[in-house]
Nucleic acid binder design. Structure first.
Length: 580
DNA sequence: GCCGTTTTCGGCCCGACTGTTTTCAGTCG
């Protein structure tokens, strides 16, 4: 059972308790525990089995959650959750997902009308039964019906890269408003989260009405969900939601801080303010004396954090993980930037499944200001991609030798390969061939459904091979599509550290593999990360920036990123291990 | 249920908007 699965069980427990009207703080505690488990780089199931005492050392996990973890991994269920499911059908959890319907109203509908499925809910609304309940009316009934038809689309998160395109379009659309003096996008998009559930736009303007009218006229705006004096929400044709807030200039920083989140980070910020006799909200930081509130700060985020005795924390780090400890110790990492990246060590050409030739990739990489690249086409086992056998690989490598001679050191092309880790273990090409290369990646393409032990064993064998420099897309996950393979990440990290190897952060927006949590764990263990585009075309080289965003979320500095070094410096990391 | 440089008990972030209300609860972020 992996961390995500364990966390999901606690979230279900919290949902059902909320449905029952249990103590809100108890519910919050379970949700908090679920988040800590999900965010942990350690394997919680292993911890629960071998060293349950250490579970309680995790911030936000106390006696109750720790015990339930042990129950869950040893018996397969949390007893309290199983009991609740005896009383309440699991299908009501779907009702809680309907936008506009929270725990209170859902419970009301369940208790009075016996509604426990989405279909029954629709029928109850259509037959006008819902409006008869106390506190409900025709409008609420319609809101639920609208929410029902959106329930599927509403939960869908889009890739950060897609959100980035949308953000650019909205920015462009709204900047033409004469009254807009500042405009920023906040929320999980600004934090660089790998997927984004909605967009939050923050604007300073003398005329909220003008900005709201303009947003309503955005191409693809399907409906206006709500519109007040300072706040507006719209839904796009795709079902994606966009929220707008209009604030005065003196509140812009406070509002930006507030709407950038995360929720957990903000709770910690406001808690900190309370301890200092201050109050923080989206309008500013206030000194509270005898019920009187005096504005202290709020025009910029720097001001807001400064008022709380903190340096400004970069948005990517605002997840209530390590950032407050770092900030207090004056040890916030100076995060890696796109301009720090000097090489790209994973890309394909027309020799296998790429769309551009070797020469085209070289000149495109040079045009992007890189100093070196590795050509890493697939090996022969990846037949779908027309993978290279030893002869074709050597042919490509002699071609690379020729190109390097012509380049006269102005740019370096490395003889590379993305070597498949075979299903039964071992590498797809013999060591004597691999040894002739400059940079060999190893990665898994087949047998992804194998057991945790098998997958881990295959990866460890690759790490131990002296010809292998790095493991590409180490967990194999595809966002929104495919879960990571079962894998003992701790064992992999340990081996990578022992053999002086490198782990890839694949910058493809659908992969972003390693994720932020594992990047942070790698940094802590001094394992270098290489950020690669895995480009299959010239345009594919431009995804590098998505990888950099993910690396920043993991707290990586230039020093932590292998390809922020020159190729000569990078070789010093890899070579000693290859010789030993 | 969790937590502690005011606390091992008594707190636990804060505000906008909507609908169904005669003053506020529910939902959302």
């Amino acid at each position: 059972m992996n961390n995500s699965q364990i966390a999901t069980e606690f979230e279900r427990l919290a949902d059902l308790l909320e449905f029952q009207g249990a103590n809100p703080f108890r519910i919050r505690a379970y949700r908090g525990g679920a988040r800590v488990i999900r965010d942990s780089a350690e394997d919680i199931a292993v911890l629960a089995r071998q060293d349950p005492g250490r579970l309680r050392q995790l911030d936000g996990i106390g006696k109750a959650v720790a015990e339930k973890c042990v129950d869950l991994v040893t018996t397969g269920e949390i007893p309290q959750l199983a009991e609740l499911l005896q009383e309440i059908p699991a299908s009501v959890l779907e009702i809680l997902r309907v936008p506009g319907l929270g725990a209170k109203r859902a419970a009301m509908i369940y208790q009075h009308l016996g509604v426990d499925t989405l279909d029954a809910l629709r029928l109850a609304c259509e037959s006008g039964q819902v409006r008869g309940l106390k506190g409900f009316g025709p409008k609420t009934e319609q809101t639920i019906l609208d929410g029902l038809s959106l329930a599927a689309a509403a939960g869908q998160r889009i890739y950060w890269a897609q959100a980035d395109e949308l953000a650019a379009a909205i920015r462009e659309h709204l900047s033409s408003c004469p009254s807009v003096t500042s405009l920023e996008l906040a929320g999980s998009y600004r934090r660089g989260k790998e997927t984004v559930g909605d967009l939050d736009i923050l604007v300073v303007s003398e005329s909220a009405d003008e900005v709201m009218d303009r947003l309503a006229a955005l191409a693809g705006c399907a409906s206006v969900l709500l519109r007040g004096e300072t706040k507006m929400s719209i839904r796009l044709d795709s079902g994606f939601q966009v929220d707008l807030r209009v604030v005065p200039a003196q509140s812009f920083g406070a509002a930006l801080q507030y709407f950038t989140g995360s929720k957990e980070h903000n709770v910690a910020v406001r808690e900190r303010a309370r301890q200092r006799g201050l109050k923080v909200n989206e309008w500013g930081v206030f000194q509270v004396v005898d019920g009187q509130e005096d504005y202290l700060a709020g025009a910029t985020e720097e001001e807001v954090y400064k008022a709380l005795g903190l340096p400004c924390i970069t948005p990517e780090l605002r997840e209530s993980r390590e950032e407050f400890k770092w900030a207090e110790a004056g040890a916030l990492p100076e995060l890696v930037e796109l301009c720090d990246i000097r090489g790209d060590l994973h890309m394909h050409t027309t020799a296998t499944d790429g769309k551009a030739s070797l020469e085209e990739m070289v000149s495109a990489a040079r045009a992007r200001g890189l100093e070196y690249i590795a050509i890493t086409d697939h090996s022969k086992r990846v037949t779908m991609a027309n993978g290279l056998d030893a002869a074709r690989l050597r042919q490509q490598w002699s071609e690379i030798d020729r190109i390097n001679r012509e380049l006269r050191g102005e740019f370096t092309v490395l003889k590379g390969l993305e070597c498949d880790i075979l299903e039964k273990g071992g590498l797809d090409l013999p060591d004597d061939v691999l040894a002739e290369g400059d940079w060999v990646l190893a990665s898994i393409h087949y047998g992804q459904k194998q057991s945790r032990a098998q997958i881990t064993e295959r990866l460890l064998e690759a790490v131990e091979n002296p010809c292998i420099a790095a493991i590409a897309h180490p967990t194999g996950r595809l966002l929104n599509r495919r879960a990571p393979y079962e894998l003992d990440v701790e064992a992999l990290f340990q081996a990578v550290r022992a053999y002086g190897k490198i782990l890839e952060l694949n910058a493809n927006p659908a992969r972003l593999d390693l994720n932020d949590v594992y990047c942070a764990a790698a940094r802590e263990q001094h394992i270098p990360i290489v950020i690669n585009s895995d480009a299959h075309s010239v345009a594919g080289l431009d995804v590098m920036r998505y990888g950099v965003v993910q690396a920043r979320r993991g707290g990586l500095t230039r020093n932590d990123v292998a390809n922020a070094r020159s190729w000569r410096e990078l070789q010093e990391i890899v070579s000693p291990a290859r010789d030993s």
